[in-house]
Each structure stands twice: as structure tokens, then as C-alpha cells.
Design a binder for these strands. Structure first.
Length: 854
RNA sequence: GCCCGCUUGGCGGAACUGGUAGACGCAACGGACUUAAAAUCCGUUUCCCGCAAGGGAGUGCUGGUUCGAGUCCAGCAGCGGGCACCA
């Protein structure tokens, strides 16, 4: 029995595609363009199953669109800066660049073995000076436009590794690598003014129609716009050195008459000032500072306040003064770091008021409810104002407007909008990143590196022997002359956050060799990305940064669309069962085997194994399967087809050995069917038997169905449809058939090869060639379904009595209602189910159903 | 706590805009071939009653709309995700 030889076949076609330049994107030409992009990988060393899934999905789209007549841009590159390279340098004494480029070489080989249709001539790595020089220029442009600035701020500081960590790199309060508790430190850092674009980023979201709602909602929430008012509470006896009023942000200016206290954050400037004269307050602040920032700590933290003794005057009520507290639940980072408390209409304020015996005055009551009082639940809903002088009788929304109007008239406040979004801190105390191109001069201050001196390249001779930033410890690199005055000055030794590189790489792919960041012609030709594919974990980070970056670049005069990605597909994770031995240590799947009765045991000793949940493949849980081993054992097409088969792309996929075996068996079944059914090419027959026509209908219906499935990224259904057709062809081939039948069979085989081309491209090419074609399938157009064959002449119509299925009838397509009704009523099953009662009504849905109502 | 999504056989999943639920596959079981095994092929497989013909129930739960509901509406439960002392 012959077997499909994927080893020879896959390399053969890969070599042929490459030699023909089949995937090189045409920068001009009459065809419409289509830019499909998968999130490029960090070169960690080897590709993992998540990559295989991601790149398979993208490749199907690329190959399908190419067959449908588009000029497709489908590039691949490397997100090559990042901490793992430095960690490798520390652990293995290998230079980050060497480690990174070796990984790239290995991963490129792995990707090529998958038969992915990339235009490799556009490949680049972001750690190359030819790449990062352009983002240094962009940074200088941002600086010039006021979009980049330096400020002191709180950061996560790892005291062992001596570096700032990103929020994602802090796990349960500890550095992900060192395990040391992370400290908060105030450091001077570079920021990008993403908040400048908060409104645009938010308001453009609804127009991203081909983005998942989930991602748009996440960005919406992340930006977190709140509309309300700033209110000034004047201090009765402002201490010297303090401003004479506390500025408060509120979304409920309508409830101002219910205010009973003002609270400021522990790190509010006024709190610091007061603490310098009040040791008890200082102690309170110090104690509050020790509260963790973890979720659990916040959840259980008691809401506590310290009465400063200061009093603030109510903006509307003359002579009414409110106590000023320092409170541990007020955030300095949000709004103005101060609130007013309205206990009747805010649950947290209510709890605070009860604790410190403050007044609870309701000012909003539900409509038509006169006897309204607050017990232990604040009323946060809509209603009508009372106890509120000029606001009395107004509904909440109107009262808000009226309150703001009065505040503005009295110069006691103004309408305002605040955002949850913070400016993007981009400084990292790391070596393996893009140097920030500025120089600190003792006389001139911060001086941008002149453009002619770009790129600022990383020095190669660095030591990782001691912790800290190797750039800062380098003997000479940072010592330079000030470009302005020529005096001794210091280079910035921080590097960019690696999200900087990935915020514009999609644009660089359009013209990767351009002397400037990108050529306008290439941008006009290819941008925006028509279909972007990647993991949902970037829903906010990378996808928001990129949307910001294009906008910032436009403000600096670059020509690029504001929205970089017009379509987005977020793929699910690749998961696997987890295993532990008796001691609770994780085991790799290959260390586990099943006994005959299905029990999991260790492969070497037969010791019992606990099978855990199906979880995302991760090294720490060892529930990983190496794609290289799968491709070696089954070939790329099997791996690809498995990735596409069972689960829809956006859902999680459980990797199973049995499923892979199933795909491999299918490939061989198909291989034998087509190569062992001897059918020579011949002219089309004039007439067909009924069986022939039935098969032809199946063939053309499949072509149409698969086309629709691929258009809508329903790859699992496309595979199912192709397998159904395979089964139909197999059944037909087993029965005796004449020359006409052989012709139809051949038509079916060709359809399978062509439909399979985007999914399992090597197998498809080989089958196509075996069917006698010399043209390369990858350069052939997509098959068209014969519409006459897609529509049935005879349809099966369901017959129901009172909505219950009682039988079926065969009718000519689009038969008259009366005929359908007559045929349905003639069924014995209908008479039986009606129990002799005459029909009260008959509903006929043409070509679908007849429902007899009795 | 708030917001969003999901819930269909033993499992992954199909089911067009409300119209024959369970396509396709995995697993399991039975059989053929074989000295045997692997591979391959054929068959069964939502559950219940029945030898069968056939009948009944069934898409998380409770109701509703409709000739007809997996699909629409209301309420509830469970699971997953996002955000979280956000004023």
C-alpha cells in the first residue's frame, strides 16, 4: 500500500516555489493589493505551536487571496530586541546579538519547512541598525512635536536585576526572573504622549468593523473616558506653601449638595506638606504606603482616612464647610488625586461616612418615591434631585449640566473629561534595545542627537558580569561631546521598550530597503494591512500602541493611514492536557503513556500520573509539543491541516496526538484514492448518468461552500467540506463506473487538489501534478463553481404536524404551494398524526418545510 | 464589584437571515483481512422504550413570543475573559 512521501514532496515544492519567486510581492501592477500579516515572532530559539497556528492561518489567507487574483504582500521578520537575549548573555556568556541571530537562522529554517508563502526578500530583524535608525529619527520627530517628553514617575524596580520592569513582567509583586519583591521607585523616564490621541483612538474604534468586538471593547475600557467636572474646594485656612483650594474631579457634579467630606490621596502634594508638620499624619501615610498593590491586597484593604483638621468650603452652600481627609483609597494617578465624598450616592463614600460618623444627605431619589432614605446601600441610580436648591426637581443628566454651568459661572469649577489611559513609558534600563537618541549636557540640558549622527548604535563590547545596565557601565560609550556646546556630556543609556519596534514594522515591510523609514509609494500601495492575525494578548498593548504610532507619525508629517490594521483576527491558544507525577512535578506529554484501561502512567516506570486540566501550552507546565517533532514525523501539511480542522480559529484548540493521526490517515487515504484510481485525461462527455450528475453537484457545491468558508475564515468548515467530498468521491470510485463517470471522478479529484491548495499546499501541488498538470498550482486561479450544478432540481421538504417532524417529501425545486401542500397532506404519517382532524392551517416554506396545523 | 463572551452527544465542533439538531472529525464498540500484530477496509454510535416497525425525550435551567426556537425576548445558574479602591 503506497504512502504519501511528505519528506521528498515537501522540500521539492518548497524549492520550486522559491526558484520561481512565487511569493514575491509585486510593488506595482494592475491587480488589487492584499496585505496579510501575522504578528511577527520574538526569536526565542524555536517555533512553538502558537506560531504554527498563527502562521498557518495567515498562510491560508495569503494563498487563497493570491489564487483569487490579488497581489498579496505576506512578509515575515523578527521582533528581535528583548530581555531573553540579555538573560541568555548572563547565563551562557553569549552576546545577545549572536544569540539572537543564531535563533533567527534556526527559526527561519523551521518556518521554511512549514511551506509558508512568505516574501522572504522583505525579511528584517528589528535589532539591525538599518531598522532601528528610523525609529530613532521618529523619536526625534516626536520630541520636536512635543509628543515625547521626560518626566519623573513611579516605576517597578527589580532590586536584584537592577532594572525597571514592565507591568507585565511583575508577577504577584515579584520580578519574573529574579523572584525578588518589586520596589516602587521614582525615576526620570521618557514618555510618549499617547493621551493626546485618547479621543481619536476611542472615537475611531467603531469604524474598525473587521475587528472583533471584544478587542474594541477592551481598548475602549482601557482608554476609559469619564466625563464630569473639576470642582475647587477652597480651604478655610490654607497652610502656607499650599494652594488655597483642593481640586477635585467628579462624574457626579449633580450630587454636590450631598457632599460631606473631601479626601486627598496619600501621595497628594498637600498631604506631604501637612505631614511635614503632623507626625501622626506622616505615620498614617507611611503605613498606607506599605499596602501592597496586588489585587488581593486592594480587595481586602480597609478604607481608612485621617482627618487633617483642614476645612474646605462648599462651592454652592455659603458657610458650609467640609472636613478634609487623607484617604488610602484615593488614587493620585487618576483625576486630580482628590475627591469629594457623597455618601448617599456612592457606596464607598457611604462606608467611609459611617465609619467616621459623617453626614449622609440624600439628594437624588428614584422617580415617584417621596419617602426616600439611605440605610446601608447608597443609591447610585437615576432619579430626581432634591435637597439641592437650584437643582431640585431636575433629572440627573440635566442636573449635571446645570451644576457645571453654575460652577463655571461662579469660577468654582468647570466641565472636564479624564481618561484612564496613561502616557506610554518607553525607557528601559536594558542593553538589548534601541538606544534613545539624546544626550544629557550639564549646560544645555537634553540635546537630541543630530540626525546626521544617526543611528546611535549599540556598542558590541559589553559585559554582563555584574547586574545593571551594561550601557551605563560601559567605559566609553556614554561619554560624548555635547552636539550644541561641545562640552563633555553623557549619552542617554536607557533603551526603548520593545513595543516601540513592533509599533511600525508593518509599515517597514512595504519597502524594507528604503533609505527612509518607508517610501510613500510603497505605503500607498500596501497600507493598511488588510488582514492582521495574532494572539488576543496584544488586544490593548501592541494593537493600541500601533494605532497611536501611526497617528503620531502623521502629526510629524509622515504619510501613513491612521488605522494600520483594517481587519483583525485574534486566534485562540493551543492547549494540551497537563500531567504531574506522584511528587507533583510536571511531566512532558512524551513522558506519559496510557495503560489499556486508559489510566495515565509514566512511560518509563509505569508510575501513576495525575492528569490535570487542559491549559495553554507553556514551558513551566511542560504541556508542550514541539512542532519540529511533529513536522519531522508527519510533515508540514499534516500539522497545518490539524491546526485548521476542528476548532474555529478564534477559539482555543486542544492539541491531541489522536487528532494528528487522524489527519495523517486522511492525507494517505486521499493520496491513495487519487493516485491509485487510474483515470486518464479526456474530453468532457456530452451526457451524464444520474449518478454522474449527483456527484458533479456535490463537487460544485463543495467548491462554493469552501470558497465561502475561506472568505469568512471558517477553516474548520472548509476542511469538513473537503473531507465530505473526499468521502463522496471514494464511494463513487469503488462502484463500477463508465468513461463518463471516470471523467466526473477526475473533475472531483482536481477540485480537491485545488481546494486543498491553501490548506495543505505541498500535497495539493503533488496531486495536481500527478493528475497530469504541468502548471504550478500556486500560480493557478481559484476554481469557480458551476452555478447550474449548485442548485438542486429536486429538493427534500420536511413535513411537520403542529411543528413536529412527521415525514419528508421530494418536490421539484420551487414547486407551487398547492402542490407542496397536497403532497404533504397525502402522507399517511400526516393523517395518523392529525388523528383524523382536518388541517386548520398549512404553512409552506418553499423548498424547506410544510407545517400542517390541526 | 463592573463590563463582555460562552453553555449543543463520551470529546472537538456543524446547523444559511427562526424552518428536517448532531455535518465533518476524534474516541469507543462490533466485524473483515492476517498465523499474529500493525496498517487498511466495512458497520454501529444523542438518550430512553422496543426483536423490529415504530414511538417518546432532547441544544445549561425557568418562563415567554411564534404554525415552528439551538437560533428571538425576560429571568436565573455555571464557565471563561477583560478591568478593577477610576471618584
Amino acid at each position: 500500500m503506497s504512502r504519501y512521501n511528505f519528506r521528498e514532496t515537501e522540500v521539492k515544492w518548497q524549492a520550486l516555489w522559491e526558484s520561481r519567486g512565487s511569493f514575491v510581492a509585486a510593488n506595482d501592477g494592475p491587480k488589487p493589493k492584499y496585505y496579510v500579516l501575522e504578528m511577527f515572532p520574538y526569536p526565542s530559539g524555536r517555533i512553538h505551536m502558537g506560531h504554527v497556528r498563527n502562521y498557518t492561518l495567515g498562510d491560508v489567507v495569503a494563498r487563497f487571496m493570491r489564487a483569487r487574483g490579488y497581489d498579496v504582500l505576506h512578509p515575515m521578520g523578527w521582533d528581535a530586541f528583548g530581555m531573553p537575549a540579555e538573560n541568555a548573555a548572563i547565563e551562557n556568556k553569549v552576546h545577545p546579538a549572536k544569540w539572537t541571530y543564531a535563533n533567527i537562522d534556526h527559526m527561519r529554517t523551521q518556518l521554511k519547512a512549514m511551506g509558508l508563502s512568505y516574501d522572504w526578500s522583505r525579511e528584517f530583524a528589528t535589532c539591525a541598525p538599518e531598522y532601528y535608525r528610523h525609529e530613532q529619527k521618529m523619536f526625534l520627530d516626536f520630541l520636536g512635536a512635543g509628543l515625547a517628553y521626560r518626566k519623573e514617575s513611579w516605576v517597578n524596580w527589580d532590586p536584584v536585576d537592577q532594572t525597571v520592569l514592565a507591568n507585565e513582567q511583575v508577577i504577584e509583586g515579584r520580578g519574573w526572573r529574579s523572584g525578588a519583591p518589586v520596589e516602587r521607585r521614582r525615576l526620570s523616564q521618557w514618555f510618549l504622549r499617547i493621551t493626546d490621541f485618547a479621543d481619536d483612538l476611542l472615537e475611531s474604534l467603531p469604524a474598525l468593523e473587521r475587528w472583533p468586538d471584544k478587542v474594541r471593547t477592551m481598548q475602549d475600557k482601557w482608554i476609559g473616558r469619564s466625563e464630569g467636572a473639576r470642582v475647587f474646594f477652597r480651604l478655610v485656612d490654607a497652610p502656607s506653601g499650599a494652594s488655597d483650594a483642593i481640586e477635585v474631579f467628579t462624574t457626579r457634579p449633580d450630587t454636590l449638595f450631598g457632599a460631606s467630606f473631601v479626601a486627598i490621596a496619600v501621595d497628594h502634594p498637600l498631604a506631604a506638606l501637612l505631614a511635614s508638620r503632623d507626625p501622626k499624619l506622616a505615620a498614617f501615610i507611611a503605613e498606607s504606603g506599605h499596602l501592597g498593590t496586588s489585587e488581593a491586597a486592594i480587595e481586602t484593604a480597609e478604607k481608612r482616612g485621617y482627618d487633617t483638621g483642614l476645612r474646605a468650603t462648599h462651592p454652592f452652600v455659603k458657610g458650609h464647610v467640609l472636613p478634609v481627609y487623607v484617604a488610602n483609597f484615593v488614587l493620585m494617578e487618576y483625576g486630580s488625586g482628590a475627591i469629594f465624598g457623597c455618601p448617599a450616592h456612592d457606596q464607598r463614600d457611604l462606608e467611609f461616612a459611617r465609619k467616621y460618623s459623617l453626614a449622609v444627605l440624600p439628594v437624588v431619589r428614584p422617580k415617584d418615591q417621596d419617602d426616600f432614605a439611605i440605610a446601608d446601600q447608597a443609591y447610585e441610580g437615576d432619579g430626581v434631585l432634591f435637597n439641592s436648591e437650584f437643582l431640585n426637581g431636575l433629572p440627573v443628566a440635566e442636573a449635571k449640566r446645570a451644576a457645571i454651568k453654575r460652577l463655571e459661572a461662579d469660577r468654582a469649577g468647570r466641565g472636564d473629561t479624564v481618561y484612564r489611559l496613561r502616557d506610554w513609558g518607553i525607557s528601559r534600563q536594558r542593553y538589548w534595545g534601541c538606544p534613545i537618541p539624546v544626550i544629557h549636557c550639564p549646560d544645555c540640558g537634553i540635546v537630541p542627537v543630530p540626525e546626521k549622527d544617526l543611528p546611535v548604535e549599540l556598542p558590541e563590547d559589553v559585559s554582563f558580569d555584574e547586574p545593571g545596565n551594561p550601557l551605563d557601565k560601559h567605559p566609553t560609550w556614554k561619554h560624548v561631546a555635547c552636539p550644541t556646546c561641545g562640552k563633555r556630556a553623557l549619552r542617554e543609556t536607557d533603551t526603548f521598550d520593545t513595543f516601540f519596534e513592533s509599533s511600525w514594522y508593518f509599515a517597514r515591510f512595504c519597502s524594507p530597503q528604503a533609505p527612509q523609514a518607508f517610501s510613500q509609494k510603497a505605503i500607498r500601495r500596501w497600507m493598511p494591512v488588510d488582514q492582521y492575525i495574532g494572539g488576543v494578548e496584544h488586544a490593548v498593548l501592541h494593537l493600541l500602541y500601533s494605532r497611536f504610532f501611526t497617528r503620531a507619525l502623521r502629526r510629524c508629517g509622515y504619510e501613513i493611514p491612521a488605522e494600520p490594521f483594517s481587519g483583525l483576527l485574534t486566534q485562540g491558544m493551543v492547549c494540551h492536557e497537563t500531567y504531574r507525577d506522584a511528587e507533583g512535578h510536571w511531566l512532558f506529554p512524551e513522558e506519559v503513556t496510557r495503560t489499556e484501561d486508559g489510566k495515565a502512567v509514566t512511560a518509563d516506570g509505569g508510575a501513576p500520573v495525575t492528569v490535570g486540566r487542559v491549559e495553554k501550552m507553556s514551558k513551566s507546565r511542560k504541556n508542550v509539543v514541539d512542532p519540529a517533532a511533529i513536522i519531522e514525523a508527519y510533515g508540514a501539511d499534516t500539522a497545518r491541516l490539524f491546526m485548521l480542522s476542528d476548532s474555529p480559529p478564534e477559539r482555543d484548540l486542544e492539541w491531541s496526538e489522536a487528532g494528528v493521526d487522524g489527519v495523517w490517515r486522511y492525507i494517505n487515504r486521499l493520496w491513495r484514492l487519487i493516485t491509485e484510481t487510474g483515470i486518464a485525461a479526456q474530453g468532457a462527455p456530452d451526457r451524464f448518468s444520474d449518478a454522474d450528475i449527483a456527484l458533479r453537484r456535490t463537487i460544485h457545491k463543495t467548491i462554493r461552500a469552501v470558497t465561502e468558508d475561506l472568505e469568512k475564515f471558517r477553516f474548520n468548515r472548509a476542511v469538513a467540506h473537503i473531507r465530505e467530498l473526499t468521502n463522496a468521491l471514494s464511494d463513487f470510485a469503488e462502484k463500477p463506473h463508465d468513461a463518463e463517470g471516470a471523467w466526473v471522478l477526475r473533475e472531483g479529484f482536481e477540485a480537491i487538489a485545488r481546494l486543498l491548495a491553501p490548506l495543505a499546499p505541498h500535497l495539493a501541488e503533488e496531486l495536481w501534478q500527478r493528475l497530469g498538470h504541468s502548471a504550478v498550482l500556486v500560480e493557478s486561479p481559484w476554481p469557480e463553481a458551476d452555478l447550474d450544478l449548485v442548485v438542486d432540481d429536486i429538493v427534500t421538504v420536511a413535513v411537520q404536524v403542529n411543528g413536529k417532524l412527521r415525514g419528508q417529501i421530494e418536490l421539484p425545486r420551487d414547486a407551487a404551494r398547492e402542490d407542496a401542500e397536497k403532497a404533504a397532506l397525502a402522507l399517511p404519517a400526516v393523517a395518523k398524526a392529525s388523528e383524523g382532524k382536518p388541517p386548520r392551517k398549512v404553512i409552506v416554506v418553499p423548498n424547506r418545510v410544510v407545517n400542517v396545523v390541526v
